[in-house]
Amino acid sequence: MVKYFLGTNVMKSSWDQVIAAFWKRYPNPYSKHVLSEDVLYREVTPDNKLLTRKLLTKTNRLPHWAERFFPSNVTRAVYIIEDSIVDPVTRTLTTFTWNINHAKVMSVEERCIYCENPENGNWTNVKREAWISSKVLGFTRPIQEFGLARFRSNVTKAIKGYEYILTKMQDDALLKTLVETAKDATGKAKETALAARDRAKGLANKTTTTKKQQYL
């Protein structure tokens, strides 16, 4: 039997912002279990969809009773493939993520669909499904239970990570605007100062001319 998870989250940011954050989400303070992230493949299809394959490496912390399934000479890191399709026309991001090693002990497959919230265009819905299974005879149930619990905890971390990155992106954008406004104001102040100096010079010249004329 496979454990199934279904959940929907509403993120209070626009789809454009969430999708931009999707590419920038690592590292963040809640992603300590993510060790590396790489793009293996990327293509824009003729109908203008963006296909991407990523390779992620994550830690594989286990409860004590499960240590026996991992001989000490075997690599402990979990390698994960994350395939994604961005459709800018339907404004949908679909991701499919799964582990490519240790899959007999535990396999976690996740599908997420990010789309605009139908009631509020400035919000984004994330529908998340997961399938968790194990092929270790006699231990299938506890392993799957553990897998589901860890998956839930990682979902919480993922959401917190997004919130952190989205806030950071907003702060950066605000800072950029402030810097530009400040630059603009400095520019205008300089212009005003220069114009004032020119006017003052003009006046001074006039005065000198007038004075000269008086001497004559």
């Binding site: 493949y41 390698y79 493939i81 679909t94 490519i100 090693n101 599908r111 669909i113």
Partner: peptide
């Protein structure tokens, strides 16, 4: 650079179909 690292570390990425396991899952729409 990444391809070389993947080969050195023996990471099994070859022959994995795009969105592979999604094909046998019920439609998510």
């Amino acid at each position: 650079c990444v391809q070389k690292a993947i080969k050195d570390k023996d990471i099994p990425v070859d022959g994995v179909e795009f969105m592979g396991p999604n094909k046998d899952k019920p439609d998510g729409d």
